[in-house]
Design a protein around this nucleic acid. Structure first.
Length: 507
DNA sequence: AAAAAAT
């Protein structure tokens, strides 16, 4: 099951010595540490960029006097990107240090020693008091990609668990098995000294999952909707002691074309047993529709939002390349980008369909490039293996469907390629026969490019534009985020790509 | 028409 080896809580150690300067180049790191992740660039949570760190000085949150009031965050003006709305009488004070949060010494040790955190990142400073202060209100929290959302809710879950109660008390639901596993790994690390038990609720391939699995005693459960629902309906997962329910990628989990039905059902069942269970919704994106809907799902809630124009597009340099046909798109990837080989970090190439993934995989392999591919039609074992190889830096180029668009965290990825632009398919309620012009999927676009430039590192995206439709989609994306995408003048020019990557800080 | 999860 999990980490039960509760070491007798040693003294919480003093903060670790200041982190190494992060001036070394990406390539250097990759060569030196084939096996390990490079050290995080900053000790601040999953922290903001370095520049942000130095000026980060979180002030007291305003106490809301009336029913519902908007607190513009009292950061330096240029830094005031997070807007908080609180309800009720509870005053919240932004946490400048982890000590202020009344965490257990064991949990603090995990933060300092295992996670190498020094003080809360901005989103953590603001959201953690809201999560941890009674009465435990629901929360809708939006924050930038790679800004430390995961650590927020993992820390939230760990600190709300009563170590003495050996039953599930916190549940986190994620859209994919990959994200569930990743989140479990964070929880394991952060909670290492707490002795809090956990289990990952994702489907397993073969017969290893017996007909009659044992009831879950783990205190924290993280997994995908189907498996969690099954465990609940089979009475293997008790919700009697449930205190916290987290939805990672909450906008997708509650979207009609996402996991809305499953999610609502799980919320309902938990609330039936525990009326006051706290519901936490986290995502980098909440479009207006979803925002409206989710506000009906949560009860008395606080919220944190970021303007879409300010959502993480700064650290990732965006490019578009016009390619006459599909063959050229493939050649651009091979001859213009993958040729640069060792000079680049890891790369994810996003496609819109499994078919597209297989096609591209075959084509690139035929051209002699080493790539691996992941999508939902592979068996679970293979998926896990491909992700593990990529995370261990054993493979450099990963072709993926949107299964990895959200949340996937691999710090060495600094380049994303959109072989296909993300499209919305849910043009629902159209009169028959009427074709609606294709819309880009803005949220997916943002999530995809958020795979590069994690933690304020440099990153770039190449959007391969082939048809007139692509061109229009690209324009809409630029307009939506109010962020121009630089054109690579000619797909034929190696120089043009080198210039682009240099300017993005990757070469 | 897509993807994902799972039945």
């Amino acid at each position: 099951m999990s980490d039960n080896a509760a070491a007798p809580a040693p003294e919480v150690e003093k903060k670790p010595s200041p982190p190494p300067e992060l001036k070394r180049s990406w390539g250097d790191e990759a060569e030196e540490e084939d096996d390990k992740l490079p050290p995080p660039p900053s000790p601040i949570g999953e922290g903001p960029s370095k520049s942000e760190v130095s000026e980060l000085d979180i002030e007291t949150l305003k106490i809301d006097e009336s029913k519902k009031k908007v607190n513009e965050f009292l950061e330096e003006p240029e830094d005031s990107t997070i807007e908080a709305v609180t309800t009720g009488e509870t005053p919240y004070t932004s946490a400048a240090t982890f000590e202020e949060l009344n965490l257990s010494p064991e949990l603090l040790k995990g933060l300092y020693v295992e996670m190498k955190f020094e003080k809360p990142s901005k989103i953590q400073a603001i959201s953690l008091p809201m999560i941890l202060t009674p009465p435990y209100k629901d929360l809708i929290a939006q924050a930038h990609n790679g800004s430390g959302k995961t650590t927020c809710f993992v820390l939230g879950m760990l600190s709300r668990v009563d170590p003495l109660i050996k039953a599930p008390q916190a549940l986190c639901i994620c859209p994919t098995r990959e994200l569930s596993i990743q989140n479990i790994e964070v929880l394991e690390k952060m909670g290492k000294y707490t002795g809090i038990t956990f289990e990952c609720a994702v489907p397993v391939d073969s017969g290893s999952e017996k007909f009659n699995r044992n009831p879950v005693f783990a205190q924290v459960v993280i997994g995908t909707p189907g498996t969690i629902k099954r465990w609940m309906s089979q009475r293997k997962l008790s919700v009697q002691e449930m205190k916290v329910l987290v939805f990672d990628e909450a906008d997708h989990m509650l979207a009609k074309d996402g996991f809305q039905d499953d999610s609502l059902r799980i919320i309902r069942d938990i609330r039936k047993a525990q009326r006051n269970a706290q519901v936490l919704l986290f995502s980098a994106t909440f479009d207006e529709n979803v925002k409206n809907f989710v506000s009906k799902v949560v009860h008395d809630y606080n919220q944190l939002f970021v303007k879409k124009e300010e959502l993480s597009l700064e650290s990732v340099k965006q490019y578009k390349v016009f390619c006459p046909d599909e063959q050229i798109k493939i050649r651009v990837i091979g001859e213009r980008i993958l040729e640069l080989g060792e000079k680049l970090g890891q790369i994810i190439i996003f496609v819109n369909s499994k078919k597209s993934a297989s096609m591209l995989h075959t084509a690139l392999v035929e051209l002699g490039y080493e790539v691996t591919t992941i999508h939902g039609a592979l068996n679970h074992e293979d998926r896990d293996k491909i992700v593990k190889e990529f995370k261990d830096n054993l493979t450099k180029v990963l072709i993926s469907t949107d299964v990895l668009a959200r949340g996937f965290d691999q710090q060495r990825v600094n380049l994303v390629i959109n072989f296909d632009l993300p499209i919305k398919y849910d043009n629902t309620e159209q009169p028959p026969g009427r074709r609606v012009p294709r819309e880009p999927h803005f949220e997916v676009y943002l999530h995809r490019i958020g795979r590069a430039g994690r933690f304020g590192r440099k990153g770039a995206v190449f959007n391969l534009i082939m048809t007139e439709t692509d061109r229009v989609l690209m324009e809409k994306i630029e307009r939506y985020f109010d962020s121009p995408v630089t054109e690579v003048p000619s797909w034929k020019s190696e120089e043009d790509f080198a210039v682009a990557l240099k300017s993005a800080g990757l070469l």
